[in-house]
Amino acid sequence: MNDAPILILDSGVGGLTVLREARVLMPDRRFVYVADDAGFPYGNWEEDALRDRLVALFGDLIVAHEPLACVIACNTASTLALNALRQSYPRMKFVGTVPAIKPAAERTRSGLVSVLATPGTVRRQYTQDLIDQWASRVSVKLVGSVALASLAERYMRGGFVDEQAVLAEIAPCFIEENGRRTDIVVLACTHYPFLVNRMRKMAPWPVDWLDPAEAIARQADRVVGDAGTRSMHGDFDPAVFTSGAPDYATQRIVRGFGLRTG
């Protein structure tokens, strides 16, 4: 019986939103969650250096865990390195994370959509290509947040977040134009859904916050197909931190998601 896991990687705990959805869709699968916390936040890296880091890191992870597939639960990493990873490891199946611009363009009624992302995702040509391909008939506002991923990490660890700081990050998403208002905000970072309740509270008017986690999990399910099985032994899946030393709060978080460290 092949019980090889599905590997899910993010720069921190944001990818746990994807793991949560993947477990719902694939309860019989094993998972390995990898937090590249030694490299967090990815938005501070030069592009070439981060791409090289990700290619090398995945090489080590593939050897260590022999996964069925690798899920890059991070928009910044996916838009930068997905093609390089597929070229470097052609036998491995990779599932990337890209901004949900197509579904946003299909659902909007006002024609005003905002994409809330890291600065790296905002400036990447990959993102502009998605807009050109799928959203040419709507107005898309790209909002690069410098602090929101870190706010989400702190919130997950401590249970508190400065709501005014959240408001400052999301405020540029809300546009009024010729009697119309933004009605969809794409959450183009897997960290952001952890703060969505605070975003709803602080938003100047209600919008549809588009969480990509379920779509990523569904794509992983399609990619893996019928390959491999899992015996329901009930053990926790492993969580790997590239720093090698997650703090107590982080260990508590991952245990809450059915993961073990060490």
Results as ranks from 00 to 15, higher is better:
120 G>V: 13
76 T>H: 01
21 E>A: 09
87 Q>D: 15
156 M>V: 08
251 Q>M: 14
184 I>V: 11
101 I>N: 01
18 V>A: 01
78 S>T: 11
225 G>A: 10
201 K>M: 09
180 R>A: 05
161 V>F: 06
55 V>R: 09
96 G>A: 05
206 P>T: 04
129 D>W: 12
222 R>G: 08
7 L>S: 05
202 M>A: 13
110 S>N: 12
259 L>R: 02
172 P>Y: 07
256 G>H: 06
246 P>V: 00
14 G>Y: 05
31 F>P: 00
4 A>P: 08
192 Y>C: 10
196 V>E: 13
5 P>A: 05
248 Y>F: 15
183 D>K: 07
44 N>A: 15
245 A>M: 10
95 V>D: 00
166 V>G: 00
181 R>P: 00
94 F>N: 04
184 I>T: 02
5 P>F: 01
120 G>D: 09
81 A>D: 04
142 L>Q: 09
55 V>D: 05
154 R>A: 11
186 V>S: 04
25 L>E: 10
117 A>K: 09
137 R>W: 05
225 G>P: 02
190 T>Q: 01
85 L>W: 03
11 S>F: 06
73 A>R: 08
97 T>M: 03
155 Y>Q: 07
124 R>S: 08
23 R>I: 01
50 L>I: 06
56 A>W: 15
251 Q>N: 11
189 C>H: 03
118 T>R: 01
68 L>G: 00
164 Q>D: 11
61 L>S: 00
230 R>L: 12
238 P>N: 00
60 D>F: 13
116 L>A: 02
35 A>C: 12
54 L>Y: 10
254 V>M: 01
70 C>N: 05
72 I>Y: 00
37 D>K: 09
32 V>F: 08
257 F>Y: 12
80 L>H: 07
258 G>N: 04
139 S>F: 14
155 Y>P: 03
141 K>D: 10
252 R>V: 14
195 L>V: 02
232 M>G: 08
30 R>H: 15
142 L>M: 12
23 R>P: 13
212 P>M: 08
194 F>P: 02
258 G>K: 03
81 A>L: 07
127 T>V: 10
229 T>H: 15
91 R>Q: 14
81 A>E: 05
3 D>P: 13
16 L>I: 06
47 E>H: 12
125 Q>K: 12
171 A>E: 15
186 V>C: 06
237 D>L: 04
126 Y>P: 04
64 A>H: 14
164 Q>K: 14
87 Q>N: 13
130 L>S: 00
2 N>F: 11
239 A>L: 04
168 A>T: 08
259 L>H: 05
78 S>A: 01
123 R>Y: 08
15 G>R: 01
217 A>K: 09
